[in-house]
């Protein structure tokens, strides 16, 4: 044991054994008022800024020097645009075009948050600039979900007024069943933001914990010495597999978030069905 400790470089030692450490919030610029409410600029805020700036940079580059036959980054930008435009059109039709900017922004933010959260941390970097996945915190995903459902309610009430309440009384239901169906529909509606938030948060949290646990295995096996050190290649390969899967999950969860927002917005457009 003593020998391996000296032989192994500090990088490979199982230092951060706690798989939850990566989700810790670190205050960079503390700011609080009333002795309790914290408005600090945290590592989460830093990563959100990083995400927004990345998106801004990408789309600025993509829309510069536009050509009829796109090349490189412009064609990537067009793929992203067409993907969401088609999703919005398929779910909501022509009327849904007004929601395109919202859905596109939401998708870009969630996708980049998931995706950039997979960046490995530079070894030895201070905790505040560790790689961080903002969507692995339920408060972030819940805020996004509330934003979506809030838009559904706001637009629905503005456009249909009291008629929006038809959402809770589906057509074709006999009158005597309504006292039973309406509470069920209300609960079903209220569980939407929660399930939207929980799904994204749980997927990101679980994926990153699995990655860290596997990484922990590699370190532990390496320091165990002998045959066990050789076996450390197995969890190492596991990390590669899980990491690839996480790429898929990063995209898939952003896609699911966006398409469910579209489906819910469809309810705001046509509440009675």
């Amino acid at each position: 044991m003593g020998m391996t400790d000296q032989v192994l470089p500090a990088l490979l030692k199982p230092m951060a054994a706690d798989p939850m450490e990566q989700f810790e919030i670190v205050e960079i610029f503390p700011l609080s008022f009333n002795d309790g409410v914290s408005l600090a600029f945290t590592n989460s805020s830093l990563f959100m800024m990083f995400i927004v700036l990345s998106a801004l940079l990408f789309f600025t580059l993509a829309t510069q020097r536009l050509q009829l036959i796109p090349t490189g980054i412009q064609s990537m930008g067009e793929v992203a645009y067409e993907f969401i435009a088609k999703m919005v059109h398929d779910t909501m039709g022509e009327e849904g075009r007004q929601f395109f900017p919202f859905v596109f922004t939401l998708f870009t933010f969630v996708f980049l948050a998931n995706f950039l959260g997979l960046l490995p941390t530079i070894p030895g970097a201070p905790h505040a600039i560790h790689s961080f996945t903002v969507t692995s915190h339920i408060i972030v995903t819940f805020t996004l979900a509330i934003l979506s459902v809030g838009l559904v309610v706001g637009y629905g009430v503005l456009k249909h007024g009291v008629g929006f309440l038809k959402l809770f009384a589906p057509s074709g239901v006999p009158l005597w069943l309504l006292p039973l169906i309406t509470p069920i529909e209300i609960v079903s509606f209220l569980s939407r933001p929660v399930s939207l938030a929980v799904r994204l948060f749980a997927n990101m949290l679980a994926g990153h914990v699995v990655l860290k646990v596997f990484a922990g295995f590699v370190g532990t096996l390496l320091t165990a010495g002998g045959v066990l050190s050789v076996l450390s290649i197995v969890p190492m390969l596991g990390i590669v597999g899980v990491f690839l899967l996480e790429f898929l999950v990063a995209f898939l969860q952003a896609f699911v978030f966006a398409i469910l927002t579209c489906i819910y917005l469809q309810d705001a457009l046509h509440p009675s069905h």
Partner: peptide, 25 residues
Amino acid sequence: FGASAGDGLRIAIEFVVSVFVGTGL
């Protein structure tokens, strides 16, 4: 296969969340 697994997981989460929201409410 991937799409079905995704759908299944999505619906499972929605079901569990509905029970919790109903109970909490």
